[in-house]
Design a protein around this nucleic acid. Structure first.
Length: 359
RNA sequence: GGGUCGGUGGCAGAGCGGUCAAAUGCAUUAGACUGUAAAUCUAACGCCUUACGGCUACGUAGGUUCGAAUCCUACCCGGCCCA
């Protein structure tokens, strides 16, 4: 399922191939986020042109809307969203906890109850249910249900979340159908070294197709985040993919790859695109601009002269700024195309750098 | 010509004697965004000053008052109605 092709001589970075139902993915890779079945502002054809290897969907949102019965009619997410390459679905654990605006989330032994953000209706997510849902989605990679704690978080709370997350992960594995869908677990433990290590070891003993590290990039310093990677990843099976959930900025991705991370997802490129922040450059030299800034009002230069996307080479920055200023939907599409292209190129360069022992 | 209503900051539009450099929205100018309820959120936004503070302002000119965007008078401008 996962094959390491090359290990960097310079760091713990690895180059690999992950085999899924819908094809091979070269690692390390980045997953554009299609929470509700769409990478906001893009079509799947756009994603194909951008060479996206995989996209990420979310159980929480897709379960609430359109609902499982619809996805079932379409025989899975792939047909529903018109994407034939791999899809990873998050379990919804993170959303249940992060969308807990009115304290309606209750963690129980067997799962977690919460109120829908759409209509306030009550729901229960259990390890079994979350797996069944993702089986209905027929996603290539399923995530286990985990309990996410806030940052900062007391050690007792973190310890109890770890205990529950491991137990739920084990249950997820047990109830999972014997099919070709991959199941990834999630290491929790906040910023407590012993908890992270224990969690990683316990999950490793159970055995999963891949290992995610969750509960990071939630307000801790980058230094703390990297330090968690430093002591957690060595406890995970080396021959399985490592996935750092929700991260991050280009620099953070690069640092994480050097520590042995193979997979990433993050809303940054898409969300910031919609807010006018554009990413440019390459692995070694990159920067951002805020296209809304007055200085771009008369900018005659192309949005991105080095882009492989025709529109980004032909439309100007001044025009893009105008589209943002008058709230034309085209602005979102152009900016998102630009940022996803940047992120996917970054990953491509990272792979090349590992191959050449330059990272 | 007569009557009537009104003229407020870039725009729209509150305020109708003090707590008003003046609500609110838009525009403008910046910033934030990390397993997406996010085309969202935050801040600044008369002039001078890092700030304290000072100065000039609610059509124009006078006046009443301790104090006026708010009251009075004249004038200018606009809408509507009548001739």
């Amino acid at each position: 399922m996962f094959k390491i092709i090359k290990k960097s001589k310079k760091s713990k970075a690895r180059l690999g191939k992950l085999k899924t139902k819908h094809g091979l993915i070269e690692t390390p890779f980045f997953m554009p986020i299609a929470t509700r079945g769409s990478v906001k502002a893009l079509t799947t054809d756009d994603l194909t042109k951008l060479n996206s290897q995989i996209i990420l969907g979310n159980t929480y949102h897709l379960y609430l809307k359109p609902g499982l019965s619809v996805i079932k009619k379409f025989k899975g997410l792939h047909k529903f969203v018109n994407w034939s390459k791999p899809i990873l679905t998050d379990s919804g654990g993170f959303q249940v906890f992060s969308l807990n605006h009115n304290g309606m989330v209750k963690v129980k032994e067997n799962g977690v109850t919460f109120k829908s953000v759409y209509d306030g209706s009550k729901h229960l997510f259990t390890p079994t249910r979350v797996i069944r849902m993702q089986e209905t989605f027929n996603s290539d990679i399923m995530m286990v249900l985990d309990e996410c704690v806030k940052n900062p978080c007391s050690k007792d709370t973190a310890a109890s979340a770890v205990l529950k997350s491991v137990k739920w992960a084990s249950k997820c594995k047990k109830v999972k159908k014997k099919n070709k869908q991959l199941l990834f677990c999630i290491v929790q433990g906040s910023l407590y070294k012993d908890l992270r290590i224990k969690c990683a070891q316990d999950l490793s003993k159970i055995g999963f197709d891949g290992y995610a590290i969750g509960g990071l990039a939630v307000g801790e310093t980058v230094k703390d985040m990297l330090s968690v990677l430093d002591y957690t990843i060595p406890e995970l099976p080396e021959d399985k993919p490592h996935y750092l959930m929700g991260v991050g900025y280009p620099k953070q991705i690069i640092e994480a790859v050097k520590r042995g991370v193979d997979m990433f997802d993050c809303v940054i490129p898409t969300r910031e695109a919609r807010h006018g922040r554009l990413y440019f450059g390459n692995l070694k030299n990159n920067s951002t601009i805020n296209i809304n800034n007055a200085k771009f009002k008369n900018a005659l230069s192309a949005i991105n002269s080095k882009s492989n996307i025709l529109e980004l080479r032909e439309y100007t920055k001044g025009y893009l700024r105008h589209l943002f200023s008058v709230k034309e939907p085209l602005a979102l599409r152009l900016a998102t195309l630009n940022n996803i292209e940047f992120y996917l190129n970054l990953m491509k360069e990272i792979r090349l750098a590992i191959k050449n022992n330059k990272l």
